[in-house]
């Protein structure tokens, strides 16, 4: 198992129930370091639910029951000794609709480092904010208005700010839940480029509705249908030569 060294997050036998309704049925996906993995599938197929299991965002939903193995660097993230706040520091998340805090741009980025105590002085914090905004490709656009309210930015800028907010606490994995679905094509292209750059340092899991996007940016793709994972493999294989007829039906536009 040569691949094991490069394994960031391993999942196996994952079942999720909302009350009595099954949302995820026996899913197993392995996420490799410095790769982009896309989760695709029609609406309601459970791909977002699965994504939210990876940083335990489903914990806040009372009726949601998660079962299965989730190993981050070999450690069970649902284990009793795991503190969910620390897990979320390691596994960051970007949401479908840009959701910057209605505070200044600076505060948005500085919030994570502040609560995790990553900076001991103001100048250290300033450096983190500047460096993070640089890596999110936003610094040159906002450097003169760091004290402006973040909600005044354009949609694409807001989403890049949310990415900056996520990477400011130096996570290993970034989860993205349809990050471009609320953006126009130009802003989408900027984000996709950013994802390509971020791959150098982070493992990225992205849920997307756009098959073209999955084809453009991801190394691996998992196809979900009605809570089951139908197929998982190298992106180019999935799109050119799918093994399963349902996958083929979906990517050729016959279902979904």
């Amino acid at each position: 198992m040569v691949e094991n060294d490069t394994l960031a997050l391993q999942t196996n036998n994952v079942y999720v129930h909302y009350g009595s309704k099954m949302a995820i049925n026996n899913v197993a996906v392995d996420f490799h370091k410095n790769q982009v993995t896309s989760l695709i599938g029609p609406s309601g197929c459970g791909k977002s639910t699965f994504l939210r299991c990876l940083n335990r965002m489903n914990d806040v939903i009372d009726i949601c029951k998660v079962q299965g193995e989730f190993h981050l660097n070999g450690i069970d993230i649902y284990g009793p000794e795991i503190q969910v706040e620390n897990l979320r520091k390691q596994v960051g998340m970007v949401f479908q609709k840009p959701n910057p805090f209605p505070k200044t741009i600076y505060e948005n980025v500085a919030y994570g480092p502040k609560i995790h105590g990553l900076a001991s002085t103001k100048s250290e914090l300033d450096d983190i904010v500047k460096d993070t905004l640089n890596r999110a490709g936003l610094y040159t656009e906002v450097k003169d208005r760091l004290d402006d309210i973040a909600t005044g930015l354009s949609g694409g800028q807001q989403q890049r700010l949310c990415i900056a907010r996520a990477i400011a606490i130096k996570p290993e994995i970034i989860l993205m839940d349809e990050p471009c679905s609320a953006l126009d094509p130009i802003a989408t292209a900027v984000i996709e480029e950013l994802i390509n750059e971020l791959k150098e340092n982070y493992t990225i899991v992205i849920v997307t509705h756009s098959m073209q996007q999955a084809a453009r940016i991801s190394d691996k793709t998992a196809y979900f249908h009605l809570g089951e994972m139908i197929e998982f493999g190298i992106t180019s294989n999935i799109f050119t030569n799918p093994n399963h007829e349902m996958t083929e039906a979906y990517i050729s536009g016959r279902i979904g």
Partner: peptide
């Protein structure tokens, strides 16, 4: 979404409530 944003960067419930 504001609560989710705060929780996702590792804020505790109390921090989320009082800060945001």
């Amino acid at each position: 979404s504001i609560r989710e944003g705060a929780l996702a960067v590792g804020a505790t419930k109390t921090q989320t409530v009082f800060h945001h």
